[in-house]
């Protein structure tokens, strides 16, 4: 945009603040418009004896459902500002605690997937872009197009079946062995072993994205004089790919990382369900099914905040790379 840097940064912060406010409002409103009586739904079992009117009212108050909608929203925001995300009755724990525990595991998956797709995607993309008409380039294009058309849960299930059932190299699910070993190093190895398949499933989706980005960029770069000159001077192999292409690709790819984060959530959700991985996706899925209002709101807000902050950081990084490049 034409505006200068400070106002750009200001706008970015403002946009994100507004987006977060929208999430807060939605997180507050949507569950309240869902059908069903949240108080009744807390009685998860038919063994439950039923509620007297007074108990019903108390429970309603405790769940932040007392008073008018406006009052509820004010109470809700005030609590939110003081860092109180509410209490999940179903988990019998503060929402912040449930969410924090789950976010840690999801972050692990996202972090592990990060290098996988950031290396493989662009690498394949460059190869395909450098030789668009040769069998390798065409083959890669067809193969990854096909892969991109397989939904993430199908990829997860295929990976699970291939590498955990047919050839049982990896565990079927979960984040850790049933009985975590006492030795921290062995334990970390176990955690990584459990995270490998879900991370790979998560990365697959992004590999396709970054493949197309890099292939397109490589095709475009191949027409630029500095690359044409370099190739004419006989520069090839790793030097061409790393020094000439990857370096110019970096800002483009970094610019897309922000979108990637938001997009990754929808993939993480499916991956965590298929691998029953105890992350935020599974928590949200369970909260929706169990109609755990407080948890659903808290999880959605935390997740959105995390995505917005990381996305701002990545955008900043992309801007810096672009100016330098």
């Amino acid at each position: 945009m034409a505006a200068g840097f400070p106002s750009r940064a200001g706008r970015m912060v403002l946009d994100r603040a507004l987006a977060l406010l929208l999430v807060v409002a939605l997180g507050f409103l949507l569950p309240r418009f869902m059908p069903g009586d949240p108080v009744e739904l807390q009685r998860a079992s038919d063994l439950d004896l039923g509620l007297a009117a007074a108990q019903r009212e108390t429970l309603r108050q405790e769940m932040g459902l007392g008073g008018s909608l406006g009052e509820q929203f004010l109470t809700y925001c005030a609590a939110l500002l003081s860092g109180d995300l509410g209490f999940s009755v179903a988990h019998a724990a503060p929402v912040s605690q449930v969410v924090a525990g789950a976010l840690a595991w999801t972050s692990l998956l996202v972090l592990l997937a990060f290098p996988i797709y950031l290396l493989i995607g662009p690498w394949l993309g460059i190869e395909s872009g450098l030789a668009p008409e040769r069998p390798l380039g065409r083959g890669l294009l067809v193969g990854l197009s096909a892969l991109g058309s397989v939904p993430p849960y199908a990829v997860s299930i295929l990976l699970l079946w291939l590498l955990a059932v047919a050839v049982p190299l990896f565990p079927l699910g979960g984040a850790e062995a049933l009985l975590p070993p006492a030795d921290p190093l062995v334990r970390i190895a176990g955690v990584l072993h459990h995270a490998a398949l879900p991370a790979l499933a998560l990365a697959t989706h992004e590999i396709v994205r970054f493949f197309f980005l890099s292939r397109g960029a490589t095709l475009a770069l191949s027409l630029r004089p500095f690359v044409i000159n370099a190739r004419a001077r006989g520069i090839a192999g790793w030097r061409l790919r790393v020094t000439y292409l990857a370096r110019s690709l970096a800002p483009v790819l970094a610019g897309r990382l922000g979108d990637t984060l938001a997009g990754q959530f929808s993939v993480v959700l499916f991956v965590e369900i298929v691998f029953s991985y105890p992350g935020i996706g599974l928590v949200i899925h369970e909260a929706i099914r169990a109609r755990d209002l407080a948890l659903l709101q808290g999880a959605v807000i935390c997740l959105a905040a995390a995505i917005l902050v990381l996305n701002a950081l990545l955008d900043g990084l992309a801007g810096r790379l672009a100016r330098r490049g």
Binding site: F33, M34, S266, L269
Partner: peptide, 14 residues
């Protein structure tokens, strides 16, 4: 910048 899947999930669930 909003993850629309979140909204889709919540609404579809109900």
């Amino acid at each position: 910048i909003l993850p629309s899947i979140l909204i889709l999930l919540v609404v579809a669930a109900s």
